[in-house]
């Protein structure tokens, strides 16, 4: 990605344990860049939620993760070979005001991603889903 001062690229197999392997790499990458722990946590949570969906329901064999760091901004591109799925428009928004009995189980993952990241975008390119995220960094 243009203007990036550091980049982390990692290919993942369809295995939920890979998400923890990625999280450790992301932690190291962010630590080296001097980013606060809270940023690392939020970024890893967003990645976890999207990758869990892709691996559990999307039928992807592999996912390519690219994280770029530019001044004041982190960018993420997730590319997978699963079935076409736009998480930002096809996943229902949770109703946060319901009580314990009424509150449905699940549906929070994509909500977290939208909350944690500054921008989210989806595109289908050929046989691949491309999810692009950015996170503005505290200056």
């Amino acid at each position: 990605m243009g203007g990036d001062v550091a980049e982390l690229v990692l290919g993942l197999n369809n295995d939920l344990a890979e998400i923890h392997r990625l999280a450790e790499r992301v932690e190291g990458f962010c630590e080296e860049a001097g980013l606060p722990m809270k940023t690392v946590f939020n970024l890893n949570l967003a990645l976890d939620e999207l990758l869990t969906n892709t691996m559990s329901y999307g039928g992807a064999k592999t996912v390519l993760v690219r994280i770029g760091l530019a001044p004041g901004r982190l960018s993420v591109v997730l590319e997978d070979d699963g079935i076409p799925f736009d998480p930002f428009h096809e996943a229902a928004e949770p109703d946060l005001d319901l009580g314990i009995d009424e509150r449905p189980i699940g549906g929070l993952g994509v909500h977290f991603v939208k909350k944690m990241m500054s921008t989210t975008a989806y595109a289908r390119q050929g046989e691949h889903n491309i999810v692009t995220l950015t996170m503005d960094l505290p200056t």
Binding site: L45, D48, I100, D101, I105, G106, G109, F112
Partner: peptide, 16 residues
């Protein structure tokens, strides 16, 4: 150290 929506799902099920 860490909880995702999968963990919150379990908490909600327990509460229900």
């Amino acid at each position: 150290d860490y909880i995702s929506s999968a963990g919150l799902r379990v908490m909600l099920m327990a509460a229900k």
